[in-house]
């Protein structure tokens, strides 16, 4: 939760609502762009890169603004860094097995 929003009066808090609407419109626009790009039938590697890049930006907006990660306590960041490390491990671990079977 944003520090400024947490400790402000209802009137002051109301001023912070605008950013939620901005993110909402941006998310809808990025969804339209994702679908639009898919109709261009780009080569698969480029298509995957573009789609996942847009999805990452959208996820960043949801996490940063809707989930208030932009101004969160250190303990939450610590938990998330640990989670990201294990997530990458889970994502990459199977690749090592395929490398082995491919004789690399």
């Amino acid at each position: 939760m944003a520090e400024t929003a947490e400790h402000s009066s209802p009137e002051e808090f109301k001023k912070h609502l605008g950013k939620y609407y901005v993110v909402f419109v941006a998310l809808l626009c990025l969804t339209a762009i994702t679908v639009g790009v898919s109709y261009l039938h780009l080569p698969r590697p480029q298509a995957i890169a573009v789609a996942l890049a847009i999805a990452t930006v959208k996820a960043g907006m949801v996490a940063g603004v809707f989930m208030h990660l932009i101004s969160e306590k250190k303990v939450i960041y610590a938990v998330l860094v640990l989670t990201a490390a294990f997530f990458l491990l889970v994502l990459l671990l199977p690749s090592f097995t395929t490398l082995e079977s491919a004789g690399v």
Binding site: T31, L52, M67
Partner: peptide, 25 residues
């Protein structure tokens, strides 16, 4: 309500990755 919201936004966040990964690529 905030905690329920954190969960709900996460559900949205997962779909943001599932949608292009499953439907578009």
């Amino acid at each position: 309500v905030e905690n329920a919201g954190l969960y709900w936004h996460f559900v949205d966040l997962v779909w943001i990755f599932l949608f292009p990964s499953l439907y578009l690529l």
